[in-house]
Design a protein around this nucleic acid. Structure first.
Lengths: 143, 143
DNA sequence: ATCATTGCAAACACTTTGCATACGC
DNA sequence: GCGTATGCAAAGTGTTTGCAATGAT
């Protein structure tokens, strides 16, 4: 798909979710689609300001909050200091290395919880986090 | 168990974990033992300052960080704004209502993840969070 | 006497808010 | 033209840091 088509696709997705597709919103969405790296606000801002020189961090915050309220993105709170963002796809887990701070996805095959929880409450979002030392850190360093 | 016994028990637990049992540390630990309410730092501080009038918030931070590093408590990052604390017991999930902000525990019967994750990395901590609307809010309000 | 712990105040970092400017239909 | 979106600057808030005072052995 060429860039023009992709942008009109994104515009369509945003419109379907009740969001008027401004340049900034399209670019933030495109960024999250293309970067499944759990970026924080600062990273998104610094990368996009090259494309939109007038971009402000406030707009990034506003946009992400808007996307979140429409269920387009999920907020990872695995990091104690700052929010990280992920395009909403299938449910998966996040592993954070407490040595190198890398966050990576992993598949979750099934989670069995007390069925009453799902029956009695309305679930909007689920997150499964694991923290520890990642493979690379275990191999490269004496921990 | 009377209070004196409990305090010497807590002292023992701390000592076993390489922590010298100061008055402040004992009281923070006791508080977490008796309040499974996922308190934040401010709540712990405000409740304990009645018992230890000279207590400072810095000490609460220091103590919790120390406990965390020894694996005595786990830090919940389910709340985007602030850390919440829980005495480390068996693994269980946390549900946070996005309407009333209450956090409650629920049983997790099993979580099946890609076995490679457990084999290749060293897991220190696991957290399973669900956000949504709780039973009471669904019953009492039109959401 | 020495080393660890406490606690005050200041600094930090992420996030939100207020408001004026600019944009889009 | 009018309502919405943007973006700057300032304020807010949870947390950390520096350092002096205190406490324990």
């Amino acid at each position: 798909m060429n860039d023009k088509n992709q942008i009109s696709n994104i515009s369509e997705i945003l419109r379907e979710n009740g969001i008027s597709p401004s340049l900034q919103r399209i670019q933030v969405y495109k960024y999250l689609l293309e970067n499944h790296t759990h970026p924080n606000v600062d990273t998104i801002y610094k990368d996009l300001v090259h494309i939109i020189p007038t971009l402000s961090k406030t707009t990034v915050y506003n946009t992400l909050k808007l996307f979140q309220s429409k269920g387009l993105v999920s907020v990872l709170t695995i990091d104690e200091n700052e929010a990280r963002f992920d395009i909403n796809t299938h449910i998966h887990g996040h592993f954070k290395c407490i040595n190198c701070n890398k966050i990576f996805d992993f598949d979750v095959e099934s989670i069995k919880i007390d069925p009453k929880i799902e029956k009695e409450n309305k679930i909007i979002d689920e997150q499964f986090y694991i923290k520890g030392f990642c493979k690379e850190c275990l191999e490269n360093e004496e921990i």
